[in-house]
Amino acid sequence: MNAERKDTSRGQLELKLGGQISALISASHALNVRTAAAFDSSIQPAAFHIVRWLYSYGPTSASVLAESTAMDRSSVSRLIKQLENLGYVRREDSPNDRRAILLTLTELGRQKTFDALQDKEFIFYERIAQWDNQQLETFIQMLQEFNGFNDN
């Protein structure tokens, strides 16, 4: 974008929006790091990212997990090994292909994830507690449009 555009009121608004998006990303990252520590302070936040993915989407292969989390396969393998040793993740045979192995959360992994996410969600819910339903619906719709998820 050229310098003249930033002198307009629209340009100034776009800069303010960029600042708010940056603040949201930074706050979200910090909250994710704290949530990972609440889950288990001995693991890296990247390991909790794997746990969080498994919690949301269920059992999967290591290759799908690596692709879905944008991590290289060796990092996923190392983190999965750590999570297995701690009792949070286990390997199981795929019901569709007995040669394939799926990674899944153990009951301990599910419960600790639920507990950690409860604390995280409370912080976000606290910020929107005073909003009425229309404000919340508008915010959700605008975020969906911004993120490219129009489901009208």
Rank of each mutant, 00 (worst) to 15 (best):
I50M: 04
Y57E: 03
A129E: 12
N2V: 01
R73H: 15
E126F: 06
S68G: 07
A47N: 02
A66K: 03
V51G: 01
S26N: 10
Q12D: 08
T35N: 04
D7S: 15
L103F: 02
Y125N: 09
A27I: 06
F146I: 10
R110V: 03
T8I: 00
M142L: 10
E107R: 07
D40S: 03
N150K: 13
S94C: 07
T104L: 05
Q118R: 11
G148C: 02
D119Y: 06
R5F: 15
I50L: 10
I50Q: 04
S42P: 13
K120Y: 07
L54Y: 00
T106W: 01
A30P: 10
I123L: 14
L143H: 09
A38C: 09
W131Q: 08
T138V: 05
K6V: 03
V51Y: 04
F39R: 05
I140R: 04
D151L: 14
A47R: 02
K81D: 13
D72A: 07
I80N: 03
I80K: 03
D93A: 14
F149M: 10
P95K: 03
L17D: 02
E4K: 09
Y88Q: 00
T138A: 15
L83K: 01
D97N: 05
Y125R: 15
G19T: 11
G18I: 14
R110L: 06
S22Y: 11
S75A: 11
W53G: 12
D151C: 15
L79S: 04
K120F: 05
N152T: 10
D97L: 01
E107D: 13
I140V: 10
F124L: 13
S61Y: 01
E137C: 12
D7K: 15
A27W: 04
D97F: 00
N85G: 09
I43F: 02
E121K: 15
G109T: 00
D93N: 14
A62N: 04
E14S: 07
S94H: 05
S42N: 14
A47W: 00
G109K: 00
N96F: 06
T104D: 05
S77M: 06
R34M: 11
K6Q: 13
I140A: 04
D93E: 11
G11T: 02
S56R: 05
N133E: 11
P59L: 03
L108F: 09
R73V: 08
D97T: 00
Q130R: 15
P95S: 04
S9F: 15
A100I: 01
A27K: 08
A70W: 11
T35F: 02
D40P: 08
N2R: 08
L102W: 02
D93W: 11
L17Y: 07
